[in-house]
Simulated assay, not measured.
Amino acid sequence: MAKKPGNSPSAIRHRAAKTAAVMASPSAAALAPPKKRTSIAQFAREVRSEARKVTWTTRRETWITSVMVAIMVVVAMIFFWVVDFGVSFSINQVLKLTAGG
C-alpha cells in the first residue's frame, strides 16, 4: 500500500505550524478602519439595487415544486406508517410470546 504524501510527522508539524501562524495573526477585518456611516437614503438606494437582482420563480416552477413536496410528504408518510406498523406488530408478537400465548 502506497504511503500518502504529506503524512510524515515533519509534514504534519509543518502544516500545524502554518495553521497556528494564520490563527495567531489578526484578521484583515480587525485591521481595517471602521466603515463610514451611510445615510438612510443611501441605504434605501442600495436595498433597491439589491432587490432588483432577485429572481423570482415562475408560476409553473412554483407549482411543480409544490407538487413534488406534496408527493414526498405522502411517500414519507407511507414509509413511516409501514415502519410503525412493522415495529408495533413485532413488539406485540414478542409480548405475546413472553406472556405465554
Rank of each mutant, 00 (worst) to 15 (best):
R13N: 07
L95R: 13
S88K: 08
W56E: 10
V83I: 04
E61M: 02
W81K: 14
A24Q: 05
P33L: 08
R37A: 14
P26F: 06
A21Q: 09
G6M: 01
S66K: 15
A32M: 10
V94W: 10
H14Q: 14
K53Y: 03
V87F: 11
Q93R: 13
A16T: 00
E46Q: 14
S8F: 02
M1H: 14
V83M: 00
A21Y: 05
D84K: 13
R15A: 11
F79Y: 12
A32E: 10
R15V: 01
F79A: 12
P33Y: 04
N7S: 11
A2S: 09
T65A: 13
K3Q: 08
A11P: 07
F85S: 04
K35N: 04
S10E: 13
S10D: 10
M68Q: 15
I91L: 05
W63P: 03
P33H: 04
A32S: 10
M68G: 12
I40Y: 10
A20W: 01
E61V: 00
T65G: 10
V47K: 13
I64P: 01
T38P: 07
P33K: 12
R48P: 00
Q93T: 06
L31D: 02
K4W: 04
F80L: 03
A30K: 07
A17L: 13
K4N: 06
Q42F: 00
S25L: 09
R37I: 07
L97P: 04
T62G: 14
V54K: 13
F80C: 01
D84V: 06
M72H: 12
V74L: 14
P34Q: 04
I40L: 11
A28H: 07
K35T: 05
A24V: 00
R48G: 07
P26N: 05
V94L: 11
A51C: 09
V73S: 15
K36H: 05
A51E: 13
A76K: 14
